[in-house]
Design a protein around this nucleic acid. Structure first.
Length: 414
RNA sequence: GUGGGCGUAGCUCAACUGGUUAGAGCGCUGGACUGUGACUCCGGAGGCUGGGGGUUCGAGCCCCCUCGUCCACCCCA
């Protein structure tokens, strides 16, 4: 048996890579206009970075991380998400000396899960983080930027859901209230929700189990129990989104799986194309994380986009086609003259592929066609004597002879 | 980790309740056409039916194990 790629780790073949390139270029172009700069981060970090930031009791840390010991017995982990690394770098390089820092990153993330549609063990995220800004206007602006990006890249039917998870001063009280509420109907909850009733009762709000949906139908909503500061922030977010013309729905049942979120959380879902993993982007505010990782108290907001999921929403027809010229030389002399001509065309940015095989022209034409040639340039002994090449347009089958000096202009024009 | 579907040629798929030598389209290759692809016609190559074990006179088909893959649960981008 030949060696294959490992489960959940995929090759992105050229046709799809073209879609990805378009996604990334569009994102960078738009994010740049909002003042973001790129940061390149390592793919491996010390394990403690993730257990401390994401939360010891989360599914990601408990059972989904690729953790291993290196040769000096240090516990390392393939990053399951990007925010922790951004914050680590922010603190490590003292980037907080700037009033506000806006960073974007992209790259592979790793989670040990069973692969399914839109979910892989190595998957790619593009993320953006605003560090050092507490205004809800930053939340709204960043979400708005993301929606603009989706629109520009061609996503249709994306829906924005927002919620607030409160902060360290109002969430504990809400959790208690919710626990009390749920204890009366604990038997209706699924095993999972019963188990995490103490640690994380919020999860029950998000659960798809029928019993859990019924049991939590008239549960208290967290947005009703926000403290003054969180409540003001949430109102500010909504009015800023309204001002920006961004449509949204408040979903008080939306709960995130990472512990560091405070105040604003949001999720962008698409109804078709994603299977049951319908979130294509998500994020929120994490005002306590920098401090938790021993940096100065710094309010932050950020999001991540799943590139595979976004790609599923776009289809393959977004790729830009540049004409491909295939060069066929017939014989030794034409070949060396051909090298010179090809160099000249490439210097002008044209795509030229030389067809090197030595079979019959018929077969070489066939190969050229399969290479995706939009035009074939033929140089044989006859042409060489005349100082011309034959250009054949593969779509129309029209053929013409063009002098060497005019070749580049002729190809560039059509 | 749990549940279900599917593994047959490079690709997409056939093969009646188990029955001769496992087929087709596309692709590949050679020719018709020795300097012209894509169209047409004719020929050819290509399969330990994912792997292993079992039942049977006989297994692509039934049973067990295993691997892979897809979808779903859990959870998440």
């Amino acid at each position: 048996m030949p060696i294959t790629a490992i489960r959940g780790f995929n090759d992105i073949l050229p046709a799809e890579a073209l879609v990805w390139r378009r996604i990334e270029e569009t994102a960078w172009r738009i994010f740049l206009t909002y003042g973001f700069s790129e940061i390149k981060l390592p793919v491996v970090e010390k394990t403690a970075l993730f257990s401390r930031s994401i939360g010891e009791a989360t599914d990601i840390v408990e059972k989904e991380m690729y953790t291993f010991s290196d040769r000096s017995n240090e516990s390392l982990t393939l990053r399951p998400e990007g925010t922790a690394s951004v914050v680590r770098a922010y603190i490590e390089h003292k980037l907080y000396v700037a009033p506000v820092t806006r960073l974007y990153y992209t790259g592979p993330m790793f989670r040990y899960e069973r692969p399914q549609k839109g979910r892989y063990r190595q998957f790619y995220q593009m993320g953006a983080e605003v560090l050092g800004e507490e205004s809800p206007m930053a939340d709204a602006e960043t979400i708005s930027m993301l929606m603009s990006f989706f629109k520009a890249v061609g996503v249709i039917g994306a829906r924005l859901n927002i919620n607030s998870l409160g902060c360290s001063s109002c969430r504990p009280a809400y959790k208690d209230a919710l626990r009390v509420f749920l204890k009366d109907r604990v038997s209706a909850l699924c095993d999972n929700c019963q188990r995490r009733l103490e640690a994380n009762p919020l999860r029950a709000l998000d659960c798809k189990g029928v019993g859990c949906i019924e049991a939590t139908a008239d549960a208290p909503a967290i947005i009703e129990s926000l403290c003054a500061s969180c409540s003001t922030h949430f109102d500010g977010l909504k009015s800023s989104l309204n001002d920006a013309g961004v449509e949204y729905a408040v979903n008080p049942r939306m709960v995130r799986g990472l512990d560091y979120y405070t105040k604003t959380t949001f999720e962008i879902t698409a109804d078709t194309g994603l299977g049951s993993q319908n979130a294509v982007a998500a994020g929120g505010r994490y005002d306590g994380l920098v401090e938790e990782l021993e940096g100065p108290k710094t309010p932050c907001f950020g999001f991540a986009v799943g590139v595979e999921r976004l790609s599923l929403l776009l289809g393959k027809d977004v790729a830009v086609k540049t004409p491909i010229n295939v060069f066929i030389a017939l014989g030794h002399e034409p070949r060396s003259k051909g090298s010179e001509l090809i160099r000249g065309l490439r210097d002008k940015g044209m795509v030229v592929i030389e067809e090197f095989s030595e079979g019959a022209l018929k077969n070489r034409m066939k190969r050229a066609d399969r290479l995706g040639a939009s035009r074939v340039i033929i140089l044989g002994e006859d042409e060489l004597k005349e100082g011309v090449v034959t250009i054949k347009d593969m779509a129309t089958a029209a053929q013409e002879k063009v002098r060497f000096e005019e070749l580049a202009d002729r190809l560039g024009a059509s």
